[in-house]
Design a protein around this nucleic acid. Structure first.
Lengths: 349, 349
DNA sequence: CTGAAAGCGCTTACAG
DNA sequence: CTGAAAGCGCTTACAG
């Protein structure tokens, strides 16, 4: 990797002149500039951004402590972030959340030592350690929390979804179809799960429907057998619900599987609502009816907000001034109708 | 962010002494060292790794040009990489492949300017631009290609799956169940797709089975309607195949959907084999029979190989010497039985 | 043991 | 227009 000094030596000019020529600053004759540019191109010169970072105090780098990116929800959020960051000449150093949970302090220390300008925290279900939260306090750079919050990060900006409203939407949809006996399989461990659940309860209340404890199920994480077992229990009970609202599409898929394995027809015997609108929702049969989120927008806005906090205008926000105070930006959701919801079975009281 | 100079000033010692004390090098009295350490801790001193990178010529950073991470296959590969890198004190700067395709040269230039020590290229279906390949030539740092290769990167190390063998496995499994009329929906645009297809053909030949053109379908990308349409055509033909081998689980899901929509039972009427063993394969009904890959191992080995090329021993490889020459490491696959394959329907010639 | 100085690869005032 | 020098935050021989 050729250095500025080499290029300067080859051209027979000073390092300073070479620097000016290559960075497009005035103070060199056009002839000299051209000569330097051509030599630099020949020798494949690449300025060392690490030096620039040290000199300017800005690394043009952000840390991204990231969810497990195991489906297109996570994937699209990350893609949205990377796109916006890239547009502002920023890059992301990515560390999986798993590592944050297991050796959180060390991870944050690494970020500090690499002088990232800010942090995008996109956590999954697991709560990070106390040591992590501790280290976070001494991080002293802008932080944006994405999708989910947890205890200890109340002082940071947040970008996520309208989870509460989504919970309401699910109920509204089912009630419009005549359902009254609606169960829920939730994930209260997460802020998103709690919000969706509150939305569910609020929706039920608005429609004057009772929330029965026996129909309110809680899982500790999704992607395990838990949701499947709860769904089976719900469907096998003496008076099964006519509809089940799931924490997300993965849970909804488990409910679908349970219904199938018990010989129940969806939506004739039971209706199911998911949350997220993963790719898989439109691929399975019956297609999932789901509360669609907008992960790409979440990712873009989260990165955009971080750039604002860093004093960098995100490309799309143009010249608007950054909002004052703590931001809590919840991207709208909408009900995406599939085939997993139908009219409530008649003949029930 | 307090600097070495500040710590030195507060302690009333030279910068050099402070440096030695904090980096654990000899040449300072124990008393001085302790004093410096405690002051540094109080002031939350974090050494600037960018400086270290400039001085040592190593940034302890690699570039990761990355697939769309929209399912757990991609996700686990990336997680495997990050884990191994982290264990060697390396971090990854991640850029989505989409950006590589659209402004490839600029992306690589960015990596060069940030002085990444090496590159992990994990591409999806789309071929990068000529400009990208051009810039790659002048990158002059170790590169490992992951999962898929493409024209222009033959000179780099590769870590992926036994795609060919997987193609054979799929056929073997179906033949053992009595199938002879086997169709294929492939993705020849990718190296993985071509290898799986070759495996398919080899498997058919070994069993003395004919490969009929009308049953060999090709899609341009998955996740669209293409595979679904081909599956419908195959199933609606005058003499439909009794089994369909799909490029991957997403395509297999589309086949499952098509069979469902046409009222065909799986596996009674038609058997389906996928590839990947995505999470979704065990969640849908019927569960997908699929050629299981091992994405976590792929990611770990790819990162491990890159570290070897960088002269850093990956944690697990211990002290073994790095293999000579170009590595082409294909991680084994295995057939993961689900419920989407059954005995060939009798009564057919 | 301790400090002053050179150097990593640059940028940027400041002289000539 | 051009060059010599200081400085970014460190490490590392080299003197005292």
């Amino acid at each position: 990797m050729s250095s500025l000094a080499e290029i300067a030596r080859i051209c027979g000019v000073s390092i300073g002149a070479t620097s000016k020529a290559l960075s497009g600053k005035p103070g060199v004759s056009e002839a000299t500039r051209q000569r330097i540019l051509s030599v630099a191109a020949q020798h494949n010169y690449r300025p060392n951004r690490l030096v620039h970072a040290i000199q300017s105090g800005r690394s043009l780098t952000v840390g991204l402590t990231c969810n497990d990116f195991r489906d297109d929800f996570s994937g699209r959020i990350v893609e949205g972030m990377l796109e916006v960051l890239y547009g502002a000449d920023y890059d992301a150093i990515v560390i999986s959340w798993d590592l944050c949970v297991h050796e959180g302090e060390k991870v944050l220390r690494t970020f500090a030592e690499r002088r990232v300008d800010g942090l995008l925290m996109f956590p999954p279900a697991d709560q990070p350690s106390q040591a992590y939260l501790q280290e976070l306090k001494s991080f002293h750079r802008p932080i944006v929390v994405v999708d989910q919050t947890f205890a200890g990060v109340e002082d940071y900006d947040f970008v996520g979804s309208q989870d509460f409203e989504g919970g309401v939407l699910a109920v509204d949809h089912l009630v419009a179809l005549g359902h009254r006996d609606i169960a829920n399989i939730g994930l209260r461990k997460t802020s998103t799960g709690r919000a969706r659940l509150e939305g569910f309860r609020a929706g039920m209340q608005r429609h004057g429907l009772a929330v029965h404890d026996k129909w309110m199920r809680e899982i500790q994480r999704y992607g395990t057998e838990e949701a499947y077992r709860h769904a089976k229990e719900l469907l096998q009970g003496p008076t099964p619900p006519t509809a089940i609202v799931a924490f997300n599409d993965w849970v909804a898929m488990d409910v679908l599987a349970a219904a199938h394995d018990l010989g129940r027809r969806v939506p004739q015997d039971v209706s199911i609502v998911g949350f997220a609108d993963l790719k898989v929702a439109s691929v399975v049969r019956p297609r999932l009816t789901t509360v669609a989120q907008d992960p790409s927008t979440i990712g873009r806005r989260a990165a955009g907000r971080l750039l604002e906090l860093l004093g960098v205008m995100a490309p799309e926000t143009g010249g608007e001034p950054a909002p004052e105070g703590l931001v809590c930006d919840r991207v709208p959701v909408r009900l995406a109708p599939g085939e997993s919801c139908g009219p409530a079975p008649s003949g029930r009281v």
